[in-house]
Amino acid sequence: MRKVFMRFSGVSAIVLGCVVLAGCTSTGSGVDEILAKPSLEMTSSIAKPDNIVPPAEIGLVPSNEEQSEEMTALAPSAPIPDAMVPMVKVPEPRPAAEPVALVVPSKPQVDTLEQRRVYRHRFRDAKPINFGRVSPKSLPVHGVDVSRWQGEIDWKRLRSQGANFVYIKATDGGDHLDPMFKKNWREAGEAGLHRGAYHFFYWCRTAGEQADWFIRNVPRVPGSLPPVIDVEWNGESRCKQNLPRKKVLEKMQVFMDKLERHYGQRPIIYTAPDFYRDNLKGEFLDYPFWLRSVAAHPSKVYPGRKWVFWQYSGSGLSHGVDGRIDLNAFHGSVDEWHRWVAKNVM
């Protein structure tokens, strides 16, 4: 049910009667129509568990148009000549309180010292791989990526297990918001993780509307990691269209340009081996990459490609999460991590 926040001050019966006669109504923002048909898409690297968390209700705040109409309804009427009414002291109207959803905390919720602390990873793997001398264990800064399929997460415990950063599933296509995004985004920040959001790209939707949808749902928050575009072929998608390489690159560029203008950060490209081979080899050399490679080091699967993050497991196990979770590592030392964060966070 659509929720509109209204607050009435002490208004005379005359003014209220005028408002009723004027037929003041609030106009809808159209969000209900956009959210009416949620997508069934999911990142292919995460298996769908049996105990699916039901979607949470997404609260709505008044649009600018609705707030304008609200203030019009609460405004005092035009002054009445003194000769027509006796002098009566009318109590001053109380200022309308801001809706809670629009109040921005005056102080950051996260202690900067806690964010700078790097925890040694203690993750396990349900399907361990012998990576040899170039094992991800040799990299000191590890993190995770999550979506609704991880359910309820104990973020403080996950942080202590070695999750120094997290990328959180935010949106798919042009009309689907992960129902756990807002909760995960808030709680990950409160636990002291560096956090960023990622978008699963649909090849049957325009790039512009997908960028608008991501921007609409992912806030511009100081300290956030750069946004991520997740590009891969997904056999479970209802959109079976595999576009020509040229068209793929064009759509990606439109999406990334729009995000970069809005957030002031160059987006990171997440991809998998088959999609990279078909479309991205030799392309976007000035963009940071996040590479999925769960059977070998990225240098073997993506020869010559520079990368920032390596997703080395889709079957990770950790305290704080029920079931499996994707594991990632940053390409560099602890000092290099701090320098990269200082340069790239919002």
Score class of each variant (00 low, 15 high):
P49M: 04
L291K: 13
N344G: 00
R122H: 15
D322C: 01
P54A: 05
P91N: 10
S293W: 09
A197T: 11
N64F: 03
M180A: 02
V308C: 09
P76N: 05
A56E: 13
L280M: 01
L74F: 00
D212P: 09
A75S: 14
I168K: 02
W340V: 11
S293Q: 01
I14Q: 15
S237E: 05
S68K: 01
E187Q: 15
V15F: 00
R157M: 09
G208R: 11
M256N: 12
I269P: 05
F200P: 06
S313L: 02
W203Y: 08
K48W: 11
N51W: 10
G208N: 07
F284T: 10
R2T: 13
G235L: 14
P95V: 12
T43G: 13
Y312P: 00
V231G: 07
R120Q: 15
L259N: 02
A207K: 08
V341H: 05
V61K: 04
A329C: 01
N344H: 12
K37L: 10
T27A: 05
A170V: 02
T112G: 00
V308N: 10
W307K: 07
A101V: 09
V85H: 02
I80M: 12
H297S: 10
A78M: 14
K137R: 15
F330C: 03
E92L: 15
P179K: 00
H338C: 06
T271E: 01
V341A: 05
G132I: 06
M346T: 04
V85S: 03
G143P: 01
R148W: 07
P49I: 12
C239K: 12
M252N: 08
K251T: 07
R339E: 13
F131R: 07
A197G: 04
F131Q: 04
L243S: 09
N328M: 12
A170T: 07
Q311V: 09
G320A: 08
K169N: 02
D230W: 08
S138C: 13
Q150F: 11
S39E: 09
R245Y: 07
S106W: 10
S26F: 10
V61A: 02
V308G: 02
E152Y: 08
W185N: 07
P99R: 02
H319W: 00
P227D: 09
V20R: 04
P62Y: 02
N234P: 00
A163G: 06
R186H: 15
E33R: 13
E33N: 11
N217E: 11
K300W: 04
L158W: 09
I215T: 08
A329H: 11
F284I: 01
H121Q: 14
M1G: 12
F330N: 03
S9W: 14
G332H: 11
S44L: 15
G223W: 00
F255P: 06
Q150W: 10
P99H: 09
S68W: 01
L40Y: 13
H331Y: 12
R277H: 12
V53K: 11
N130K: 14
V11F: 12
F284P: 09
I325T: 10
A75H: 05
V110K: 06
